[in-house]
C-alpha cells in the first residue's frame, strides 16, 4: 500500500489507505471479539465488556474514519459533550427508576436487593 502520510493540501486531512484498512481490520477484530465473548459466561461483566468494546470501536470510527484526530478539537468536544449529557440523562433516570421500582411493581416482581 502506498503510504501517503503527508499529502495534505490545505483543506482536511487525507487518510492514507493503510490506515483506513488497518482501522477496518481492527473494527472487524473487535466485532469478532465481542461476539466471541458472549459464549463465555462472565456474569454481569459481559455487558460491560461488550460496552467497552463498543466504545473502542466507536472511538476508532470517530478518530480515523471521521477524522476527529486531525480535526478542530471543538468537533471532538461536541461529540464528547453529547455523550456527557446523555450520560447525565440516562444516569439520573436510571438511578431514579431503580429507586422507585419497588413502589410501582406488583408484589410478585419485587426482587429483594442483594446485600
Amino acid at each position: 500500500m502506498n503510504a501517503h502520510t503527508n499529502d495534505d493540501h490545505g483543506i482536511g486531512h487525507v487518510s492514507p489507505i493503510w490506515m483506513l484498512l488497518g482501522v477496518f481490520a481492527l473494527l472487524i477484530f473487535f466485532t469478532v471479539l465481542t461476539v466471541a465473548v458472549t459464549y463465555v459466561d462472565l456474569g454481569p461483566a459481559n455487558i460491560w465488556i461488550a460496552l467497552a468494546v463498543a466504545v473502542v470501536k466507536g472511538a476508532l470510527v470517530g478518530l480515523y474514519f471521521m477524522h476527529l484526530r486531525y480535526d478542530s478539537p471543538f468537533n471532538s468536544l461536541i461529540l464528547v459533550g453529547a455523550f456527557l449529557f446523555l450520560a447525565v440523562f440516562i444516569g439520573i433516570a436510571l438511578m431514579d427508576t431503580g429507586e422507585y421500582q419497588q413502589n410501582i411493581s406488583p408484589p410478585d416482581t419485587v426482587r429483594p436487593v442483594a446485600g
Binding site: F85, V88, F89, I92, M95, D96, E99, Y100, N103, I104
Partner: peptide
C-alpha cells in the same frame, strides 16, 4: 438547566433520593 428537570416531578412518584438531589 440540564440537571434540575426532576423538580417538576416532586409529587409524581419520583424517588426520595432524586427529589433531594
Amino acid at each position: 438547566g440540564f440537571l434540575v428537570w426532576g423538580h417538576h416531578m416532586f409529587t409524581s412518584g419520583q424517588s426520595a433520593m432524586a427529589n433531594a438531589v
